[in-house]
């Protein structure tokens, strides 16, 4: 039996809307390294799910997220995102993939010379959206993240929590199917962090799949969402309504 046919039996439709992210026996070893950054990860995250990705530094969280963004290709196995086999995606198709994924980082990554409005609008401008749409959608999104009155501020005039809200607005403004957050509360104090995670939860309730890598035990324990724990590149726990530690 040929390999694709076998595959079709196990996953009748890998492009189904149910599995929005699917890792199929995925391993990743970086060039020039012997130890695998990820080894034999096999899991799927369904549409509309909220999943925490936990583990110590170097456990493979970042690699996991970067494989979803197709910043890297897996060394072994396949990664499906939004119905596309990323190992078969052509490089010219990448922008289309990325438009379906919003990304938030620990260090916000806002453009310092642009106002809050311009930072959010930038994400739409550069994918060729009309000025009319931008004028409508950006204020809406700023309102959603609670910054309706700060559109003309520069990032440096905002607190860390506010800056992260801008980054979330930018990631969400195009209404992606998936939102990836890599330690979004890593630079924030606990009270602010809770606000950020509540915002992500709210976005998740609007039917966006959220994957959040974090070190923050309090938040994970509070939210009681799915917890995927990685250790030294291996999957050690995948628990619905989990907590940070055992």
């Amino acid at each position: 039996m040929t390999e694709p046919a076998e595959h079709a039996q196990i996953f009748p439709n890998p492009g189904s809307t149910v599995d929005v992210i699917r890792f199929e026996n995925v391993s990743k070893t970086y060039k020039g390294q012997t130890r695998a950054a990820l080894s034999d990860i096999d899991l799927s995250i369904e549409k509309g799910e909220f999943a925490f990705l936990v583990g110590t530094s170097g456990s493979g969280k970042s690699t996991f997220l970067r494989l979803i963004l197709r910043e890297y290709l897996p060394s072994k196995g396949r990664v499906y995102v939004a119905g596309k086999d990323l190992t078969r995606l052509r490089s010219w198709q990448l922008p289309q993939l990325r438009r379906q994924i919003g990304t938030v980082f620990q260090d916000f990554r806002l453009l310092p010379g642009k106002t809050v409005f311009e930072n959010v609008a930038f994400a739409l401008q550069v994918i060729g959206k009309s000025q009319g749409l931008i004028k409508r959608v950006v204020p809406e999104t700023l309102e959603l993240v609670g910054l309706a009155d700060k559109g003309d501020r520069l990032p440096e005039e905002l607190s860390g929590g506010e800056q992260q809200r801008v980054a979330i607005a930018r990631a969400f403004v195009n209404r992606p199917k998936i939102l990836i957050a890599d330690e979004p509360t890593g630079n924030l104090d606990p009270a602010t962090s809770v606000g950020i995670v509540r915002l992500l939860d709210q976005i998740n309730k609007a039917n966006t799949t959220v994957v959040m890598a974090t070190h923050d035990a309090t938040i994970v324990n509070q939210m009681r969402k799915r917890v995927i724990e990685l250790d030294k590149g291996g999957l050690v726990r995948d628990q619905a309504k989990g907590v940070y530690g055992y």
């Binding site: 010219w92 922008p95 990304t103 990554r109 453009l111 994400a123 994918i127 930018r170």
Partner: peptide
């Protein structure tokens, strides 16, 4: 490079960048 990084992240085409 910051802008380019963000453009790539949000899915601007290489041509556009």
């Amino acid at each position: 490079r910051r802008e380019i990084g963000i453009m790539r992240l949000v899915g601007a085409s290489n041509w556009y960048i």
